[in-house]
Design a protein around this nucleic acid. Structure first.
Lengths: 207, 207
DNA sequence: GAAAAACAGTGACATATGTTACTTTACAAA
DNA sequence: TTTGTAAAGTAACATATGTCACTGTTTTTC
C-alpha cells in the first residue's frame, strides 16, 4: 500500500486520513536529477519523500544556490508555503538520486488539514524543520567564508551518500554554492594541502 | 478588550477562542529597544503585535545580523518554530519602536491549534510569510552586494518609519547588515555621490 | 563653556572572491 | 591507440569587503 511508509513514520495518523491518502495520492518514481518542482511553475502537489533524496534550491539574478536537502527516509513534506495560495514556486526541487515520492494534491491537503489534527501537526513540524534549515543556511552564508561552507557542503554530501567518496564535479559544487568553478578548484587545492579532502581522479574523498 | 484588534484583523476567529485568549493572554507594553525574546532563552509566549514594530535578528560567531522586521499593524505571530519543542530561541527579537504586544502562552496555543481551525490557518499563513521573508533575506545576501543591500535596508527602514528622514547611526546599520561601521561610512559616501541618500548631520535622508 | 564620549571620515593595506584566458589531465568513444 | 570532450589547474588581475590607525566632528555631561 502507498501509505505503508507513512504509518511507519507517523503512527498516529487517523485511519480515515490514510484511506483518503490511499484514494487520492500518487506514488511516483523519479530518476536522478529530475525536476519535481521548477521555479516559476504552479505547485499542485505536496510531495512526501518515500525514499531517495531531494535538493531544494533557488535562482535569483541568474545565480543558483542551494537551500537545503530533504533527506531520504525522512518522509519530508515541503511546498507548505504554497498550500494557501496559487503563486508559482519560488524555488526548484530536483532529485539527487533515484527517488520515490508520494504526491498529495494540494486542494485535498487543505481539506485534510482542517479535518485531521495529526496531519496538521506533521506539517507544522516540517515547516519548523525547514525554517531552521534555511536559517542555518543563512547563518552560514553570512558568518563563514566559502572555504568553511565548502567543508560543510562536502560533509553533508558525504553523509547523504553514506560514503566518503563523492562523484562530484567542481562545476556542480560551484553551482550549489553560488560561485564559479575556478574558485572551487582553488579552494579544493587548499583543502587538499590541509588534508581535509583528497582529489582522486574525478572523485573527491572526504577525510 | 484585548482581543478587539484580533477580531478586526481576523474576522473568522471562533467566539470560544476569543474568550480563551481574553482569559489567558497578556497585553504588554514594551518601550523601544526592549528585548521580547533573547537568543538562548526559552520561549514561553507567542507574541502577537498589536502596534509598533519588532526586529528579529540572529547572532552567530559573535556577528549579529538582521533577519526581518515584523511590521506594525500586521498582527504578526512568530516563534512558531518553538511551539512544539522547548529548545531555547535561535534568534532575538527587539522592539524597534514603543510597541504593544499580546502574549499568548505557548502551552495554551498548542491546545488551541488543535481545537480551532481558524487559529491554525493563521499560524500556517504567518509561517509562510516569515519563511518567504527569510528566503528573500537569504537571496539578497547571496546575490547582491552590500551597496544594494544597504539601499534595500534604508528603503525598508524608511517605509517602516513612514518617513524619509532616518535617525540611524552608521554603527547601527553596520550591525544589522553584519559588517563594520567604516564599510557603511564608505558606502554611504558612495550613495551620497549618487544622490540616493543625503547625510544631514547625524540623520539620513532617503531620496 | 570645557571636557568627555560617541559618532563619522578617510587613507592604506589585507584578504576573499570573481573573472579571464589559457594549459593540462582524465575519461570515453571510435 | 587515437582522438575528442569534459573537467580540472592555474596565473594574473579586478573588485568588494574587512581592518587598522588616525583625525575630525557632534553631542552630552559636568
Amino acid at each position: 500500500m502507498k501509505t505503508d511508509f507513512l504509518i511507519k513514520c507517523y503512527p498516529n495518523l487517523e485511519k480515515e486520513l490514510l484511506q483518503e491518502i490511499e484514494n487520492y495520492s500518487l506514488l511516483k518514481t523519479f530518476t536522478s536529477k529530475e525536476y519535481i518542482v521548477k521555479q516559476g511553475q504552479n505547485i499542485r502537489y505536496l510531495p512526501v519523500i518515500y525514499n531517495g533524496c531531494v535538493k531544494v534550491f533557488c535562482n535569483e539574478d541568474s545565480i543558483d544556490f542551494l537551500l537545503y536537502f530533504i533527506e531520504s527516509g525522512e518522509s519530508c513534506i515541503y511546498s507548505f508555503a504554497h498550500i494557501h495560495d496559487t503563486k508559482p514556486a519560488e524555488f526548484s526541487a530536483i532529485t539527487e538520486l533515484d527517488s520515490e515520492l508520494l504526491l498529495l494534491p494540494i486542494d485535498k491537503v487543505m481539506l485534510w488539514i482542517k479535518k485531521f489534527p495529526s496531519l496538521n501537526s506533521i506539517i507544522l513540524n516540517n515547516y519548523k524543520k525547514h525554517y531552521n534549515d534555511l536559517l542555518n543556511t543563512t547563518k552560514q552564508i553570512i558568518c563563514y567564508n566559502l572555504e568553511d561552507r565548502l567543508i560543510e557542503y562536502l560533509k553533508t554530501k558525504s553523509k547523504l551518500k553514506e560514503s566518503n567518496l563523492l562523484n562530484l564535479s567542481h562545476q556542480n559544487i560551484a553551482k550549489d554554492l553560488g560561485t564559479s568553478r575556478e574558485v572551487i578548484s582553488r579552494l579544493m587545492k587548499k583543502l587538499s594541502v590541509k588534508e581535509i579532502v583528497k582529489q582522486e581522479g574525478r572523485k573527491i574523498k572526504v577525510l
